[in-house]
Write a protein that binds this DNA or RNA. Sequence first.
DNA 1: ATCCAGGATCTCC
DNA 2: GGAGATCATGGA
Length: 291
Amino acid sequence: MTINENLQDQKITIKGAESFDISQILECGQCFRFSKVDSRYKIIAFSKVLFVEQVDQEVIFYNTTREDFDSIWMNYFDLSTDYSSIKKVLANNDKRLHEPIAFADGIRLLNQEPFECMISFIISQNKKIPMIKNIIKTISEIYGTQIDEDSYAFPTPQQLGKVSIDELLSCKTGFRAKYISDAVQKVCSGEIDFDELRTMPTDKVREKLMSVYGIGLKVADCIMLFSLGRKEVFPIDVWVKKIMKHYYFDGVDVNLKEITDLSNELYGDYAGVAQQYLFHYARHNPSIMKV
DNA sequence: ATCCAGGATCTCC
DNA sequence: GGAGATCATGGA
């Protein structure tokens, strides 16, 4: 992989990007603040606006500098992780993964901002992805800081700390409004400290996150996988449950713990990466699970 | 109209 | 402890 900067056009070009498909990375359900504008994806993260265009293995990042690329986007796109070797390990462990991996082998796990990720996945419960994106966009536009003509950063904990439950309700958050409120309060008070969580063992992090009213096992695992670098956790939503049931339990109903135990056994340290291939594959091929 | 959505909690037994 | 109802909201 080679990285080149073009100062005049404020763009960075990567050639020979390995296991990198910007469409798959963004559309696989791990993040919500992006849109497609012509041939480019517009991404809002870390209070920055980034445009990404990809043709085969050449990826162009617009509206950025080498400095930002090194300090923000390298880590955001997890570019120092070798996904081809992860895929090799997973595929060797379990033939079942061959198809899901082949279906979207350009997926990468983004390292997102924990606070935004936490609120986003609280909102995600019992909603479809387009609706989740809309609510997060609304909240950002009303309470976040404007960063260009038509873009707004996701609000900080302090900014959301001033927002009442009624105001959250008017953003169409429904029964999740009180959940968001409790999460924001726990972050503002320091009871939840993401820098501290980064240093704690996974089980303790999960326990801490689940102490928020409205964060259960699945949302806690999403926060850990998508913003705290815990690639060993395996969030189980309706789609993952369906495909795991279909693949390993002969379609027979099964409880979450059995699936979790199996994921640890089969996928080990990379269970979360496997989960993302499985989720994406299941969502785009629902017919395979209808026996 | 009725059902369901990247769930979590409450309410029963 | 574990199944079932309930929670807002909008789209199919």
